[in-house]
Design a protein around this nucleic acid. Structure first.
Length: 292
DNA sequence: ATGTGTTCCTGTCCGC
DNA sequence: TGCGGACAGGAACACA
């Protein structure tokens, strides 16, 4: 018996997209039979009467904006979900032939539990509680305080070479911090910024406004490439899950610099060693040999 | 307007 | 094994 599916480990954009895709078959088009809310707040207070406002609603659509999952409901409201640093979604009872009440025992930090009429249970678990949930009118999602000042989607058309160059022109902040700035581009996190700068051969400490235009423009297709690879890896791990038991790995093998301090650089012919520096309180990993 | 440092919270890992 | 400290995917906020 395989009672449940739990993912994921690293809530950056590809992870959030993988979670969205994993929730889609059990939630989209389905009615919420019962929502339970086990505490009044996560990072922020949860909305008033959240359980009542969810219960009985049909999930019309699951969208993603940056690292946020947005569930449009038949009630005219949209549920916003953010995983923060440690948020996880557990789906149980969704397997063919599973009994509806075949759910694992509740775990510590299970903050919100959503039972669908189709029999699946979706559990939001978040030890650190940096995650968030909110409800808002669907027509006003763009105006939500957490979404209003987000920059373009990194996989979308408005994030292009001209945009990035113009946006970073004159900026005196390190390129690492600039790419982590959600107003510049929405959805890049620490891991993928490190990976992108490695592929671009750019030292994370360089000031954004001082990087040659041609080098800066190179970043755009590399952002798309790195994210697309990670989303594909997440997708294949979802598919694998239908065939095998166990917790999913997630793109871990594919990091070339992230969390590899002291290890040899992966670039052929480069004798460098991956270094770690702290920039605005976060670890940056890079190869001093091929990132300049 | 920009840029930087602190903070929220819990869990895990590493050195002594 | 126990204990303290460093560190962890995010991002709002306060302040220079």
């Amino acid at each position: 018996m395989r009672p449940s599916v739990r993912w994921g480990k690293m809530p950056e954009l590809p992870e959030v997209e993988t979670v969205r895709r994993g929730l889609e078959p059990v939630m989209t088009g389905q009615i919420i039979r019962l929502a339970q809310v086990n505490r009044p707040d996560l990072r922020f207070p949860l909305p008033d009467r959240m359980a009542e406002r969810l219960t009985g609603a049909r999930v019309e659509q699951l969208r993603r904006r940056s690292k946020y999952i947005l569930a449009d409901l038949s009630t005219g409201e949209t549920l916003l979900i953010h995983l923060g640093m440690s948020g996880r979604m557990l789906v149980s009872g969704a397997q063919l032939g599973a009994f509806h009440h075949d759910h694992p025992a509740p775990q510590k930090h299970d903050h919100v539990v959503i039972d669908m009429e189709g029999g699946a249970r979706v559990t939001f678990n978040d030890a650190r509680r940096f995650g968030a949930m909110d409800l808002m009118p669907t027509a006003a999602t763009d105006a939500h305080p957490l979404l209003a000042s987000l920059g373009p989607e990194p996989m979308g058309n408005t994030f292009d070479e001209d945009y990035l160059f113009n946006r970073l022109k004159g900026r005196a902040t390190p390129i690492k911090a600039a790419l982590l700035d959600q107003r510049v581009v929405a959805g890049l996190g620490n891991i993928y910024v490190c990976e992108v700068l490695y592929r671009a051969g750019i030292d994370p400490r360089l000031l954004a406004g001082q990087i040659e235009e041609a080098r800066l423009r190179q970043i755009v297709p590399l952002v798309r490439e790195v994210l697309a690879e990670a989303i594909a890896a997440g997708g294949s791990s979802l598919r694998d899950y239908r065939q095998a038991d166990g917790e999913l790995g997630y793109f871990q093998h594919a990091f070339r610099v992230y969390d590899r301090e002291g290890q040899p650089c992966a670039t052929p012919g480069c004798a460098g060693t991956i270094a770690r520096v702290v920039q605005s309180g976060r670890s940056s990993y890079f190869c001093p040999g091929c990132q300049r």
